[in-house]
């Protein structure tokens, strides 16, 4: 479940108001499973809606709810920016 051909982009690298589609995952398994349990699955769309004043964490808009996570955790999800 990688990104075809493209250089990998991670959720942690998105800027504010940037949208993207989740394409895969890599890295710490416990966090990956947690994020997926909260609905961050491959194929879903996400948008970074807030960045905390000191640059971290970020808040991500999912289908319904908003979830805030540290960049170090967001880096487990590979995305394809829209």
């Amino acid at each position: 479940m990688g990104v075809e051909g493209l250089a990998n982009v991670f959720l942690s690298e998105l800027k504010r108001q940037q949208r993207a589609r989740i394409t895969g995952f890599t890295g710490r398994i416990a966090i990956t499973q947690r994020l997926m349990a909260m609905g961050m699955l491959p194929g879903r769309d996400v948008e970074v809606v807030q960045v905390a004043p000191f640059g971290d964490p970020v808040t991500v808009q999912l289908d319904s709810g908003r979830v805030s996570l540290r960049r170090s955790e967001a880096s487990v999800l590979q995305v394809e920016p829209a």
């Binding site: 908003r66 979830v67 805030s68 996570l69 540290r70």
Partner: peptide, 10 residues
């Protein structure tokens, strides 16, 4: 102990 993820629902 292992750290817990800081995944916080708003």
């Amino acid at each position: 102990t292992k750290p817990s993820p800081f995944v916080l629902e708003m």
